[in-house]
Nucleic acid binder design. Structure first.
Lengths: 251, 251
DNA sequence: TATGTGTTTTGATGTGGATCAAAGGCAACC
DNA sequence: GGTTGCCTTTGATCCACATCAAAACACATA
């Protein structure tokens, strides 16, 4: 495709402008990798983040075992991360939405440790890792924020360990709903009604529960007047009640 | 200080020399933060790592909520990391031995997220975080390896999620013993006999099990001829059998 | 509209590990 | 040597969630 053709295609929906300023124009910049950068620093990052990639629902952004060479910022859509065990058992280890970073698990070994699967048609910004390291050496704000994002991933995971290790089924699900609610809120979406993108089985896998248990908990919360559920659509009716669920345990 | 003086001091008690070359002389340098650095780079890191700290058994290296300003490399001893939940429930999120880094959970929020408690008299090297970030900007090998260590912490935690989410009690304990064995082996200790530093309760907390269940699993493994146990001392008799335990599940 | 496939709900039953309880072992200290 | 305070082991019982089963539902495609 010639440059002229490309430009014509892009003129209709702004792709070129976005390519030239991936982060500066992105409405996720406050919560994504560029958070806290000055305009000048933002420009430098923009030179790096110039490849977008669309991932259709059900497709993998990357798979465990593939060579790692980039991290990804979710621009739109929703992903699950999943590790598969030698014997075929697997577990969902996280869900990622806009502004969140995927792929940091690959840095340690140079090979991805999990699959990242789109749960709806999604788009990511690809960030070549070698160049990110270089740039982080020059732009201390970028370095600092990148470290923070890795650290927060560590903290997030220890939260999941807590959830898996000490909470009972209904607490886990209440905690999950509140977490999603809070993340949507931070992105300017309604914190009280949303579509879950994952199946009951995927959610159960993440929470260490069977799909039937997830379904029963949803039904229970519905009967208790805490939420409305209709398939994957959820409306939180009584958010305080939901918080009570996991404050109100035995012990 | 002349080379002669240095040698003389070292012959007596080594402390000053160690201070001046914390990492260069450390037998953990191959697995710790300085892994892969050149001699010259090592010198630069040594300027940073000049504070040792002893932590007695039962004492905290840091606690959740404290201001984060340094990460720590375990020089000797053994630590548990523990997060405490609002309602008082807590969970052990990891165990750390020589050459491993503690405190990276604090980077994200500038506040420690967990307690790090010594399970035996221990010593750590304190690494001021602000200066580490600076140095990482100059020494790319250090930057790279630091990122790897953070990434490996993420991968380690997703392994624990797997363990908590999909494994049954005996599998968890077999996996734990094999993990300890492998880490001791990497440090030049016997992989087949060792002292556990944690109580059954702490181990249970880490594995999402009650102390009685841990104890029963140890007894079972003993009866099956896989290990010998005497209090905290463990000898692995049949390492292949132990591997079978978690390969040999239902499904 | 029919048809197939995957998802969700709900009920009945089973079980792995928690809980409750008690006794024994070990180390520190007087 | 005896006391005290953990820690560990083992047995008996219980229960939260898994498992098994079946029906209802949603959604895509013909």
């Amino acid at each position: 495709m010639s440059r002229g053709e490309l430009a014509r295609q892009q003129s209709t929906h702004l792709v070129l402008a976005e390519l030239k300023a991936a982060c500066a124009n992105c409405n996720l910049r406050e919560i994504c990798l560029p958070a806290g950068l000055s305009n000048e620093e933002l420009d430098q990052l923009d030179n790096l983040v110039n490849v977008r990639r669309k991932v259709k629902r059900g497709e993998a952004l990357y798979r465990a075992g593939e060579v790692f060479d980039a991290i990804y910022a979710v621009r739109s859509g929703f992903f699950k991360s999943r590790v598969t065990y030698e014997d075929g058992r697997d577990q969902v280890t996280g869900f990622s939405m806009g502004g969140e970073i995927l792929g940091m698990d690959g840095i340690g070994q140079g090979i991805h440790n999990c699959d990242a699967i789109a749960l709806e048609d999604s788009e990511v910004c690809s960030i070549p890792y070698a160049r990110l390291e270089e740039l982080a050496r020059e732009v201390s704000g970028l370095q600092r924020h990148f470290h923070k994002m890795m650290s927060r991933e560590i903290v997030r995971e220890s939260g999941v360990m807590m959830l898996l290790g000490v909470m009972r089924a209904e607490e886990r699900i209440a905690a999950f709903l509140l977490n999603i609610s809070q993340r949507l809120n931070a992105r300017g979406y309604s914190p009280l009604e949303f579509h879950l993108r994952m199946t009951r089985e995927e959610l159960g896998s993440y929470l260490g529960l069977k799909l039937e248990t997830v379904s029963r908990a949803f039904s229970k919360f519905h009967n208790d007047g805490l939420i409305e559920v209709e398939q994957k659509f959820v409306r939180i009716i009584d958010i305080e009640g939901l918080k009570q669920v996991y404050a109100h345990h035995v012990n």
